[in-house]
Design a protein around this nucleic acid. Structure first.
Lengths: 136, 136
DNA sequence: TAGTGCTGGTCTCTTTTTGAGACTTATATA
DNA sequence: TATATAAGTCTCAAAAAGAGACCAGCACTA
Protein backbone atom coordinates (compact mmCIF):
# COMPACT_ATOMS: atom_id res chain seq x y z
CA UNK A 1 0.00 0.00 0.00
CA UNK A 2 1.34 3.38 -1.03
CA UNK A 3 1.98 5.42 2.09
CA UNK A 4 1.02 8.60 0.26
CA UNK A 5 -2.43 7.23 -0.39
CA UNK A 6 -2.83 6.25 3.23
CA UNK A 7 -1.83 9.79 4.12
CA UNK A 8 -4.57 11.28 1.96
CA UNK A 9 -7.01 8.74 3.31
CA UNK A 10 -6.32 9.92 6.81
CA UNK A 11 -7.42 13.40 5.76
CA UNK A 12 -10.68 11.87 4.64
CA UNK A 13 -11.03 10.17 8.01
CA UNK A 14 -10.71 13.49 9.79
CA UNK A 15 -13.76 14.74 8.00
CA UNK A 16 -15.60 11.45 8.47
CA UNK A 17 -15.03 11.63 12.21
CA UNK A 18 -16.65 15.02 12.56
CA UNK A 19 -19.98 14.03 11.08
CA UNK A 20 -21.74 15.94 13.82
CA UNK A 21 -20.41 19.47 13.59
CA UNK A 22 -17.99 18.87 10.74
CA UNK A 23 -17.64 21.62 8.17
CA UNK A 24 -16.12 21.16 4.74
CA UNK A 25 -13.11 23.30 5.74
CA UNK A 26 -12.24 20.53 8.22
CA UNK A 27 -10.94 18.49 5.29
CA UNK A 28 -8.22 20.61 3.66
CA UNK A 29 -7.88 18.39 0.62
CA UNK A 30 -11.58 18.59 -0.12
CA UNK A 31 -11.59 22.30 0.54
CA UNK A 32 -8.90 22.91 -2.07
CA UNK A 33 -10.03 20.33 -4.62
CA UNK A 34 -13.64 21.45 -4.64
CA UNK A 35 -12.45 24.95 -5.53
CA UNK A 36 -11.02 23.67 -8.81
CA UNK A 37 -13.31 20.68 -9.50
CA UNK A 38 -15.94 22.50 -11.46
CA UNK A 39 -16.87 22.82 -15.06
CA UNK A 40 -14.75 25.85 -15.99
CA UNK A 41 -11.82 26.20 -13.57
CA UNK A 42 -9.39 23.79 -15.19
CA UNK A 43 -10.24 25.13 -18.64
CA UNK A 44 -9.49 28.72 -17.60
CA UNK A 45 -6.33 27.63 -15.79
CA UNK A 46 -5.26 25.92 -19.01
CA UNK A 47 -5.84 29.09 -21.01
CA UNK A 48 -4.10 31.37 -18.51
CA UNK A 49 -1.15 29.00 -18.22
CA UNK A 50 -0.36 29.84 -21.82
CA UNK A 51 -0.39 33.61 -21.30
CA UNK A 52 -2.39 36.35 -19.59
CA UNK A 53 -5.73 37.11 -21.18
CA UNK A 54 -8.29 39.85 -20.96
CA UNK A 55 -11.90 39.20 -20.06
CA UNK A 56 -13.21 39.49 -23.58
CA UNK A 57 -10.40 37.36 -24.98
CA UNK A 58 -11.25 34.55 -22.57
CA UNK A 59 -14.88 34.82 -23.54
CA UNK A 60 -13.99 34.41 -27.21
CA UNK A 61 -11.52 31.63 -26.43
CA UNK A 62 -14.17 29.62 -24.57
CA UNK A 63 -17.26 30.49 -26.56
CA UNK A 64 -19.67 28.30 -24.62
CA UNK A 65 -19.10 29.87 -21.21
CA UNK A 66 -21.67 32.44 -20.17
CA UNK A 67 -20.43 35.86 -19.14
CA UNK A 68 -21.92 35.23 -15.73
CA UNK A 69 -19.94 32.02 -15.16
CA UNK A 70 -16.76 33.53 -16.58
CA UNK A 71 -16.99 36.40 -14.09
CA UNK A 72 -17.76 34.07 -11.23
CA UNK A 73 -15.13 31.44 -12.01
CA UNK A 74 -12.40 34.07 -12.43
CA UNK A 75 -13.54 35.66 -9.17
CA UNK A 76 -13.29 32.32 -7.35
CA UNK A 77 -9.87 31.55 -8.85
CA UNK A 78 -8.71 34.99 -7.77
CA UNK A 79 -10.08 34.47 -4.29
CA UNK A 80 -8.18 31.21 -3.90
CA UNK A 81 -4.99 32.93 -4.99
CA UNK A 82 -4.47 31.24 -8.35
CA UNK A 83 -5.26 34.22 -10.55
CA UNK A 84 -4.26 37.88 -10.50
CA UNK A 85 -6.69 40.51 -11.79
CA UNK A 86 -5.32 43.80 -13.02
CA UNK A 87 -7.33 46.76 -14.27
CA UNK A 88 -5.68 49.05 -16.81
CA UNK A 89 -6.94 52.65 -16.92
CA UNK A 90 -7.58 52.67 -20.65
CA UNK A 91 -10.80 54.04 -22.09
CA UNK A 92 -12.79 51.93 -21.71
CA UNK A 93 -10.85 50.23 -18.90
CA UNK A 94 -9.49 46.78 -19.70
CA UNK A 95 -8.89 43.96 -17.26
CA UNK A 96 -6.14 41.41 -17.55
CA UNK A 97 -6.10 38.05 -15.81
CA UNK A 98 -2.87 36.12 -15.22
CA UNK A 99 -1.67 33.21 -13.10
CA UNK A 100 0.01 33.93 -9.78
CA UNK A 101 2.98 31.91 -8.53
CA UNK A 102 0.51 29.77 -6.59
CA UNK A 103 -1.53 29.30 -9.74
CA UNK A 104 1.51 28.21 -11.73
CA UNK A 105 2.44 25.86 -8.90
CA UNK A 106 -1.00 24.27 -8.95
CA UNK A 107 -0.99 24.05 -12.74
CA UNK A 108 1.97 21.67 -12.57
CA UNK A 109 -0.02 18.67 -11.31
CA UNK A 110 -3.16 19.83 -13.10
CA UNK A 111 -1.21 19.80 -16.33
CA UNK A 112 -0.23 16.18 -15.72
CA UNK A 113 -3.91 15.32 -15.45
CA UNK A 114 -4.74 17.24 -18.62
CA UNK A 115 -2.02 15.34 -20.42
CA UNK A 116 -3.40 12.07 -19.18
CA UNK A 117 -6.76 13.13 -20.57
CA UNK A 118 -5.22 13.95 -23.92
CA UNK A 119 -3.45 10.58 -24.10
CA UNK A 120 -6.36 8.47 -22.85
CA UNK A 121 -9.49 10.00 -24.24
CA UNK A 122 -9.68 7.14 -26.69
CA UNK A 123 -9.85 4.57 -23.91
CA UNK A 124 -12.48 6.61 -22.07
CA UNK A 125 -14.59 7.01 -25.18
CA UNK A 126 -14.35 3.28 -25.86
CA UNK A 127 -15.38 2.46 -22.29
CA UNK A 128 -18.33 4.79 -22.60
CA UNK A 129 -19.47 3.25 -25.87
CA UNK A 130 -19.14 -0.27 -24.49
CA UNK A 131 -21.09 0.66 -21.38
CA UNK A 132 -23.86 2.34 -23.32
CA UNK A 133 -24.11 -0.65 -25.65
CA UNK A 134 -24.68 -3.15 -22.84
CA UNK A 135 -27.07 -1.14 -20.70
CA UNK A 136 -29.33 0.06 -23.54
CA UNK B 1 6.92 28.43 -24.00
CA UNK B 2 6.32 24.84 -22.96
CA UNK B 3 5.47 22.85 -26.06
CA UNK B 4 3.16 20.61 -24.04
CA UNK B 5 1.03 23.57 -23.06
CA UNK B 6 0.85 24.71 -26.64
CA UNK B 7 -0.25 21.21 -27.55
CA UNK B 8 -3.12 21.32 -25.07
CA UNK B 9 -3.99 24.79 -26.22
CA UNK B 10 -4.40 23.55 -29.75
CA UNK B 11 -7.03 21.12 -28.48
CA UNK B 12 -8.89 24.07 -27.07
CA UNK B 13 -8.67 25.79 -30.45
CA UNK B 14 -10.34 22.85 -32.13
CA UNK B 15 -13.38 23.36 -30.02
CA UNK B 16 -13.25 27.12 -30.39
CA UNK B 17 -13.26 26.76 -34.16
CA UNK B 18 -16.46 24.75 -34.21
CA UNK B 19 -18.57 27.29 -32.38
CA UNK B 20 -21.36 26.72 -34.86
CA UNK B 21 -22.05 23.01 -34.75
CA UNK B 22 -19.36 22.16 -32.22
CA UNK B 23 -20.21 19.58 -29.61
CA UNK B 24 -18.32 19.11 -26.38
CA UNK B 25 -16.99 15.76 -27.62
CA UNK B 26 -15.04 17.72 -30.24
CA UNK B 27 -12.58 18.68 -27.51
CA UNK B 28 -11.25 15.41 -26.10
CA UNK B 29 -9.49 17.02 -23.18
CA UNK B 30 -12.63 18.78 -22.06
CA UNK B 31 -14.68 15.66 -22.62
CA UNK B 32 -12.48 13.64 -20.26
CA UNK B 33 -11.83 16.37 -17.71
CA UNK B 34 -15.46 17.33 -17.29
CA UNK B 35 -16.24 13.73 -16.43
CA UNK B 36 -14.06 13.95 -13.34
CA UNK B 37 -14.35 17.67 -12.52
CA UNK B 38 -17.31 17.49 -10.26
CA UNK B 39 -17.95 17.60 -6.58
CA UNK B 40 -17.67 13.88 -5.77
CA UNK B 41 -15.61 12.10 -8.44
CA UNK B 42 -12.14 12.82 -7.13
CA UNK B 43 -13.24 12.05 -3.58
CA UNK B 44 -14.61 8.64 -4.59
CA UNK B 45 -11.54 7.93 -6.71
CA UNK B 46 -9.43 8.72 -3.67
CA UNK B 47 -11.41 6.31 -1.53
CA UNK B 48 -11.40 3.50 -4.11
CA UNK B 49 -7.66 3.97 -4.76
CA UNK B 50 -7.11 2.73 -1.24
CA UNK B 51 -9.18 -0.42 -1.62
CA UNK B 52 -12.47 -1.64 -3.06
CA UNK B 53 -15.54 -0.54 -1.13
CA UNK B 54 -19.17 -1.50 -1.00
CA UNK B 55 -21.95 1.00 -1.59
CA UNK B 56 -22.87 1.38 2.06
CA UNK B 57 -19.23 1.65 3.11
CA UNK B 58 -18.68 4.54 0.72
CA UNK B 59 -21.78 6.22 2.05
CA UNK B 60 -20.47 6.01 5.58
CA UNK B 61 -17.00 7.08 4.49
CA UNK B 62 -18.35 10.20 2.84
CA UNK B 63 -21.25 11.06 5.13
CA UNK B 64 -22.31 14.22 3.34
CA UNK B 65 -22.98 12.65 -0.06
CA UNK B 66 -26.59 11.86 -0.77
CA UNK B 67 -27.46 8.32 -1.80
CA UNK B 68 -28.70 9.73 -5.07
CA UNK B 69 -25.40 11.43 -5.92
CA UNK B 70 -23.37 8.43 -4.77
CA UNK B 71 -25.32 6.19 -7.13
CA UNK B 72 -25.01 8.65 -9.97
CA UNK B 73 -21.32 9.47 -9.54
CA UNK B 74 -20.38 5.78 -9.31
CA UNK B 75 -22.49 5.10 -12.38
CA UNK B 76 -20.69 7.85 -14.31
CA UNK B 77 -17.25 6.66 -13.18
CA UNK B 78 -18.19 3.16 -14.26
CA UNK B 79 -19.41 4.41 -17.61
CA UNK B 80 -16.12 6.18 -18.27
CA UNK B 81 -14.23 3.00 -17.43
CA UNK B 82 -12.58 4.07 -14.18
CA UNK B 83 -14.63 1.91 -11.84
CA UNK B 84 -15.73 -1.72 -11.87
CA UNK B 85 -19.04 -2.69 -10.28
CA UNK B 86 -19.51 -6.23 -9.06
CA UNK B 87 -22.66 -7.69 -7.55
CA UNK B 88 -22.30 -10.56 -5.09
CA UNK B 89 -25.29 -12.91 -4.76
CA UNK B 90 -25.53 -12.67 -0.98
CA UNK B 91 -28.85 -12.16 0.77
CA UNK B 92 -29.41 -9.26 0.49
CA UNK B 93 -27.08 -8.82 -2.50
CA UNK B 94 -24.03 -6.69 -1.93
CA UNK B 95 -22.22 -4.59 -4.51
CA UNK B 96 -18.51 -3.88 -4.56
CA UNK B 97 -16.87 -1.01 -6.40
CA UNK B 98 -13.19 -1.07 -7.37
CA UNK B 99 -10.83 0.80 -9.68
CA UNK B 100 -10.11 -0.61 -13.13
CA UNK B 101 -6.65 -0.44 -14.70
CA UNK B 102 -7.77 2.72 -16.46
CA UNK B 103 -8.94 4.13 -13.14
CA UNK B 104 -5.62 3.39 -11.48
CA UNK B 105 -3.85 4.94 -14.45
CA UNK B 106 -5.90 8.13 -14.13
CA UNK B 107 -5.43 8.21 -10.37
CA UNK B 108 -1.68 8.65 -10.89
CA UNK B 109 -1.88 12.28 -12.03
CA UNK B 110 -4.98 12.91 -9.93
CA UNK B 111 -3.02 11.83 -6.90
CA UNK B 112 -0.34 14.42 -7.70
CA UNK B 113 -3.02 17.08 -7.64
CA UNK B 114 -4.42 15.79 -4.35
CA UNK B 115 -0.95 15.92 -2.87
CA UNK B 116 -0.51 19.46 -4.06
CA UNK B 117 -3.78 20.31 -2.32
CA UNK B 118 -2.59 18.70 0.88
CA UNK B 119 0.70 20.62 0.80
CA UNK B 120 -0.74 23.96 -0.22
CA UNK B 121 -4.08 24.28 1.50
CA UNK B 122 -2.47 26.75 3.91
CA UNK B 123 -1.52 29.09 1.07
CA UNK B 124 -4.98 28.80 -0.45
CA UNK B 125 -6.67 29.49 2.87
CA UNK B 126 -4.44 32.53 3.42
CA UNK B 127 -5.21 33.87 -0.06
CA UNK B 128 -8.91 33.44 0.59
CA UNK B 129 -8.74 35.26 3.92
CA UNK B 130 -6.73 38.10 2.42
CA UNK B 131 -9.17 38.43 -0.47
CA UNK B 132 -12.23 38.40 1.78
CA UNK B 133 -10.63 41.01 4.03
CA UNK B 134 -10.04 43.52 1.22
CA UNK B 135 -13.33 43.14 -0.63
CA UNK B 136 -15.58 43.25 2.44
C1' DT C 1 -24.82 66.41 -31.79
C1' DA C 2 -27.02 62.12 -31.98
C1' DG C 3 -26.01 57.52 -32.85
C1' DT C 4 -22.92 53.36 -32.44
C1' DG C 5 -19.60 50.49 -30.49
C1' DC C 6 -16.29 49.01 -27.19
C1' DT C 7 -15.05 47.68 -22.44
C1' DG C 8 -16.24 44.47 -18.35
C1' DG C 9 -19.40 43.42 -16.10
C1' DT C 10 -24.57 42.97 -13.34
C1' DC C 11 -29.62 41.71 -13.21
C1' DT C 12 -33.42 38.81 -14.05
C1' DC C 13 -35.56 34.78 -15.60
C1' DT C 14 -35.54 29.89 -16.95
C1' DT C 15 -33.60 25.44 -17.01
C1' DT C 16 -30.66 22.00 -15.05
C1' DT C 17 -28.44 19.88 -11.25
C1' DT C 18 -28.21 18.67 -6.56
C1' DG C 19 -29.90 17.58 -2.00
C1' DA C 20 -33.25 15.55 1.60
C1' DG C 21 -35.71 12.12 2.66
C1' DA C 22 -39.54 8.70 2.11
C1' DC C 23 -40.29 4.30 -0.18
C1' DT C 24 -39.03 -0.59 -2.25
C1' DT C 25 -37.92 -5.80 -2.39
C1' DA C 26 -36.32 -9.66 -0.41
C1' DT C 27 -34.31 -11.92 3.43
C1' DA C 28 -32.54 -12.47 8.25
C1' DT C 29 -33.00 -11.79 13.07
C1' DA C 30 -35.31 -10.69 17.69
C1' DT D 1 -44.90 -10.41 14.16
C1' DA D 2 -41.91 -6.43 14.17
C1' DT D 3 -37.55 -4.69 12.81
C1' DA D 4 -33.25 -4.36 10.36
C1' DT D 5 -30.19 -4.50 6.30
C1' DA D 6 -28.60 -3.96 1.37
C1' DA D 7 -28.57 -1.08 -2.62
C1' DG D 8 -30.84 1.51 -4.66
C1' DT D 9 -35.25 4.58 -6.83
C1' DC D 10 -38.75 8.30 -6.59
C1' DT D 11 -40.51 12.76 -5.54
C1' DC D 12 -40.19 17.27 -4.26
C1' DA D 13 -37.53 21.41 -2.76
C1' DA D 14 -33.37 24.16 -3.06
C1' DA D 15 -29.31 25.61 -5.26
C1' DA D 16 -26.52 26.39 -9.23
C1' DA D 17 -25.87 27.34 -14.02
C1' DG D 18 -27.22 29.23 -18.58
C1' DA D 19 -29.48 32.88 -21.74
C1' DG D 20 -29.85 37.16 -22.73
C1' DA D 21 -31.22 42.03 -21.69
C1' DC D 22 -29.26 45.91 -19.59
C1' DC D 23 -25.68 49.36 -17.61
C1' DA D 24 -21.95 53.25 -17.40
C1' DG D 25 -18.36 55.83 -19.53
C1' DC D 26 -15.91 57.20 -23.24
C1' DA D 27 -14.35 57.38 -28.44
C1' DC D 28 -15.48 57.55 -33.01
C1' DT D 29 -18.62 58.48 -36.76
C1' DA D 30 -22.20 60.57 -39.41
Amino acid sequence: MDSKIVSLRSKLEIYKAGSGGGHIADCPVRDVIQGISNKWSSLLMMALAEKPYRFGELRRLVPDISQRMLTQTLHDLQRDGYVHREVFPTKPPSVEYSLTDLGRSMFGPLHQLLQWAELNHGAVRDARNAFDATEA
